Simulated assay, not measured.
Amino acid sequence: MTLAASAFAQLAAWPDLTEVEPSCGIGRALGSAHGEIAHFHSDRVLDLRLTARAIRKFEEHLTGAGSVRLVPGSPWVTLRLDVVADVDVLMTLVSLALQVQQAWPVAGEGPRTACNDHRGTVFPDVFGGG
């Protein structure tokens, strides 16, 4: 089982998350009562919707995590799952995403805000390419 498949199964068991149809039409997605949370696009890459406000607040920590890629202007962050520690980062960020979507709802950041998959997110070569 891939890290992404294992992470998806773990998250799908969380009571606040359910499998939903990804709005981008690619892969599998999880959502909460407040909208989409995560799009698993491949066996290694997924997008997670945090909200722009949360990204600004935690930007220093997010940019410090090698597995996280920020796209300017997007309320989504892209994660690459290469090692078990990346799944730990994902679990923490999903918990944060659930909290901020409940505490900081922001007009214009609804569940249909396009994920980063449509923005051509590419990881640096240290990950072995896109």
Rank of each mutant, 00 (worst) to 15 (best):
A65I: 10
V84Y: 07
V89L: 14
G108P: 06
V87R: 01
D88Q: 12
E19V: 04
R80A: 06
L79R: 01
L46Q: 01
H41P: 01
Q102M: 12
A13M: 10
I37S: 00
L48F: 03
C115S: 15
H41M: 02
H39P: 07
L11M: 03
A12H: 08
A114D: 12
L62A: 05
A65E: 14
Q102D: 15
D82G: 13
T51D: 12
T18L: 00
V87L: 02
L46H: 01
I55F: 08
E21D: 13
A54N: 03
A52N: 07
G64F: 06
M91I: 02
W104C: 10
C115D: 11
E19M: 03
E36D: 10
C115Y: 05
F127Y: 13
G66S: 11
A65K: 13
S74W: 02
E36K: 05
G31N: 06
W104D: 13
A97W: 02
E21N: 12
H34V: 09
A52V: 05
D16Y: 04
A54T: 08
H118T: 15
L90M: 02
H41N: 02
S23W: 09
T51Q: 10
R119G: 04
G64N: 08
V106K: 11
N116C: 11
F127D: 00
Q10V: 04
I55L: 08
C24L: 02
A38Q: 01
V68I: 13
L93V: 04
V122L: 05
L62W: 02
R80I: 10
S67C: 15
I55G: 01
G120Q: 10
A5H: 10
A97S: 15
L48A: 03
V84W: 07
A85I: 08
G66E: 11
L81S: 00
A29G: 07
G66Q: 08
I26H: 08
H39C: 15
Q102V: 13
L96V: 11
E60R: 14
F8W: 09
P111D: 12
H118C: 11
G35L: 09
G27F: 04
